[in-house]
Write a protein that binds this DNA or RNA. Structure first.
Length: 238
DNA sequence: GGCATGTACGAGAGTATATA
DNA sequence: TATATACTCTCGTACATGCC
């Protein structure tokens, strides 16, 4: 039995922004109708539109129970967020919703730590090793790459070679808190070294130097030292 | 023409909801 | 509670397009 892929269509930022803006206003059933109307101009095929709606709902609406409190907190502030902060939020929720997207991101991040340019072929091969050698994996990988290009995360330097766009610096304590909670969730962990969080390949497009003082004030986490140098951040029980 | 890539469609399994 | 029905989600694959 091969691992499910799910993410098989390019997702645009304006679709994610719109979904986020509507999430607190409508019931689940209403959301399908609202999104269908909104996407009608961009996606003409009925089936493709339904597929896109499925993805948007999974990213923003049907989030893991553990992440709902921080998702709701983000939604309260969503209109005040900068485009860069919104991008990180979309990125984090997509990673949490789609393990395939997470694995592609992790592979990109790992390779970008070693080199300046990454070929889509290398990513494709790696995904086929993990998810099976099938056309669906090619379609999904291309959908993830297409989304990352559309979000201006990566830039093509030639036909199948990509370089990373300038890293986005994140300073807001709310967004940093979100960032840490997403990492703890997707890595299925209650505690992580601060150094590992700040340099994790999953968030390769972002530069997030944690503001420990402000994060301490948010009460969601506690900190302790492991040895002389290593600072560990731990999720507080709810 | 062959190949790669993006988009669309139909099928089927799984899940949620309505109704008796 | 059990069953029927509707809806959601994922998949394989067909088709269109562009490039070599």
């Amino acid at each position: 039995m091969s691992k499910p892929v799910g993410f098989d269509q390019k997702v645009l930022l304006n679709h994610l922004d719109y979904t986020a803006n509507q999430t607190k206003k409508h019931s689940r059933k209403e959301m399908y109708t609202v999104l269908d109307n909104y996407l009608r101009d961009d996606i003409t095929g009925v089936k493709s539109r339904k597929n896109a709606i499925t993805m948007l709902m999974k990213i923003w609406y049907r989030v893991d129970d553990e992440l709902k409190p921080i998702r709701d907190e983000i939604l309260e502030e969503f209109s005040q967020l900068t485009n860069e902060e919104r991008l990180l939020v979309h990125w984090g929720l997509t990673i949490a919703a789609y393990p395939f997207f997470k694995d592609v991101s992790n592979e990109f991040g790992r390779l970008f730590q070693l080199q300046d340019e990454v070929s889509s072929k290398a990513i494709n091969n790696r995904m086929k090793e993990a998810y099976g050698d099938r056309r669906r994996v090619e379609v999904a990988t291309s959908a993830v790459l297409g989304s990352m290009k559309a979000w201006n995360i990566i830039q093509p330097v030639s036909k199948s070679i990509y370089t990373i766009s300038e890293k986005i610096i994140i300073t807001s304590s709310l967004i940093q808190s979100f960032f840490v909670q997403i990492l703890l969730n997707v890595l299925d962990s209650d505690a992580l070294h601060v150094d590992l969080i700040e340099n994790h390949p999953l968030f390769f497009p972002f530069n997030c130097e944690l503001n420990i003082t402000e994060l301490r004030e948010r009460k969601s986490f506690s900190f302790y030292r492991q040895g002389v140098k290593d600072l560990v951040i731990e999720r507080n029980p709810i």
